[in-house]
Design a protein around this nucleic acid. Sequence first.
DNA 1: TGTACATCAGTGAACGCGCGTTCACTGATGTAC
DNA 2: TGTACATCAGTGAACGCGCGTTCACTGATGTAC
Lengths: 261, 261
Amino acid sequence: MSQTERDRPSVLRAARERTRAEITREILDAARRHLATDGASGLSLRAIARELGMSSSAVYGYVASRDELLTRLIVAAYDALGSAAETQEAAVDREDLAGRWAAACGAVQGWALANPNEYALIYGTPVPGYTAPAATIAPAARVSSVLLGILRDIAAGRPAPATAEDDVPPDDREALAPARSIVGPEVPDTLLHQGLMAWAALFGTVSFELFGQLHGIVGEQPGDREAYFAESVRRWAAQLGITPAGTAPAARKPARPLEPA
Amino acid sequence: MSQTERDRPSVLRAARERTRAEITREILDAARRHLATDGASGLSLRAIARELGMSSSAVYGYVASRDELLTRLIVAAYDALGSAAETQEAAVDREDLAGRWAAACGAVQGWALANPNEYALIYGTPVPGYTAPAATIAPAARVSSVLLGILRDIAAGRPAPATAEDDVPPDDREALAPARSIVGPEVPDTLLHQGLMAWAALFGTVSFELFGQLHGIVGEQPGDREAYFAESVRRWAAQLGITPAGTAPAARKPARPLEPA
DNA sequence: TGTACATCAGTGAACGCGCGTTCACTGATGTAC
DNA sequence: TGTACATCAGTGAACGCGCGTTCACTGATGTAC
């Protein structure tokens, strides 16, 4: 039993650390709940303490300041969204590019609808007076990494510039340099630009839905928003040159001729 | 001079109304300035009063409440953006559909970059605890009206469903009903859907730029953002079947075949 | 087994600040007789 | 021309609230001898 005795302090320490982690988690959960009703700039350490039944000063044992709490929430949100996109995209057959694209888009939209306040925290108006520290950069990049990965595989499955409708102008090629340094040289400029456009369109669409901009434009009956989103996803995929499984990706049929009169 | 005498009271009243309007304008201007540093939820009547050198209670002579001030700011922002889009689009030759599209997009982006805080007020995260009254609906619709007008003219210049790559699935057609009731029956489903996608993509792109999401993706050298945006505008237009003046809009060449090996 | 000590999570009062909104009032201006 | 009155923009004090952060402290728990 000397074993037990020697371990005791660390067992206790471990237990303390466990409750500490648990309380920290509860603080973050409460903070997330407050995000819903008051928004990021209404986030209040005192309100959280009140809800958890502790004194306002006690919170400072777990969180250094309001800004630090905000940073943790932001990082957690990026990580949650990023891992949703990663796992859902990874679950699809690597060959099925359209399926992977749809999975990634669906993950983003699904997570956003399930966590509207955390979505707004990271993709809505930046919190005034708060500047995101470096710790948020890596988690923020996870979703775009997934999308860029798909882009890379689209390029890989295509013999050089296949759909080079028109190449990108030189000043745009320069503008794309940072993205290029992430994605590598294999992805043609056109595809890269089109990919970024789809990326912005995806988040634009999700934000429009969440922020009420689709009101009076896209129906709100059950199924309407799903149908609209699904069709958009399909069309973004088509713009990237990938079509749902069953259709050969490389062989895009030309525009259908006018209906026979 | 009986004329003058009879008019006098109304002349005075008119003067009073003029100064009243002027002070109201100054309150709105100060509010806009505060939006920049503190965001919508940090907007404070007391701070505005302080800046204008009046007592906080005096503001209530011009503005009924904080919420009413917010509503006025929102309406003013929608109107400013809407009229920018309207006038810039109207200045282009009606025949030049791609030019009109580019003008509308440019107006939106230009206004947003010049007025980032007002843009965030209307297209960013909704202000928590504030619900937009009916008075905001009409001004909010101005930009989309401009875009839908272009869509209508695209359809008019095309002999029925010309580019029906694939029609829209029935559940999506239903989802598009509200938009359809605005745009009228002449615009084919495909074009309508594609138009809404371009609309969401436009605002998604502007929001990404303004909210810092393009950092590390699209360059920040002088000219980079302009080039990226211009190329995106061109490609959205191409997706709508319109190409810059000089190219015949109706005659879209089918996807170029693979390069001869 | 018993006592003195260390650790440490949590308390509660306080500082100094800000806010929206109300309300009785002042004081300048113009009006009516 | 002179006086009593009405109008009305603006004041300043007050109400009741909330906030982030600090700091001296309590009190439970475990440790060492």
